Amino acid sequence: MAPPVTDASPPAATPPLQVTATASALQLIDTLRSRHGPVLFHQSGGCCDGSSPMCFAVGDFIVGDRDVRLGEIGGADFYISAPQFAYWKHTQLIIDVVPGRGGMFSLENGEGVRFLVRSRLFTDEELAALSASGRV
């Protein structure tokens, strides 16, 4: 007997995470949370510490109306400015930690390490899934 014919579409692909973090970054987030309470991240494109992901205690940074929530890393919401999102929407941000000084207002300043953005381009299939979900 032939299988029944259906007109159901195949299930949509699960969209990929738009922001992830390395084990080192997750460990540093836990350390900062233990000292400062809940934290959040903001990625801007401005001057000064512009391209560094900045970590703030919740309440110490006001998220703008146009900021885009990419997701969360280590239980911390991660936001990006709308102009930066328009530029980077085709990439997955991977938050890592490297030796150095953190941004002047970022909580990791003084720890001897800093957060760093690494990235990779989404595949065509991943972009299609993000588009279908309304995320790009």
Rank of each mutant, 00 (worst) to 15 (best):
P53H: 00
E108F: 07
S9W: 02
M104W: 11
Q84A: 10
Q18F: 05
I80H: 03
Y87R: 14
V97C: 03
R101S: 14
Q92D: 04
A25W: 04
S106Q: 01
A8R: 11
I94Q: 07
E126R: 10
D77Q: 11
R118N: 12
A57Q: 13
S24H: 07
A2P: 15
Q27V: 02
S131E: 14
G46M: 05
V5R: 13
V117S: 15
H42E: 08
F122C: 12
S34Q: 09
G103L: 01
P3M: 00
C48T: 07
G100I: 13
Y87F: 14
D49V: 10
L116G: 00
G75K: 03
L32A: 05
A129V: 02
P4V: 00
E108W: 06
A25D: 02
N109S: 14
G102L: 05
G71Y: 01
R114N: 06
C48A: 14
V136M: 12
D7V: 06
W88Q: 06
A82F: 08
D49F: 10
L93W: 07
V39W: 01
P4W: 00
T20C: 11
Q27I: 01
Q27Y: 05
V58C: 13
Y79E: 04
E126D: 08
S81R: 05
D124F: 10
W88L: 11
E111H: 08
L32K: 09
R114A: 06
H36F: 11
S106Y: 02
D65V: 11
E126N: 09
L130C: 09
F61H: 12
L121N: 13
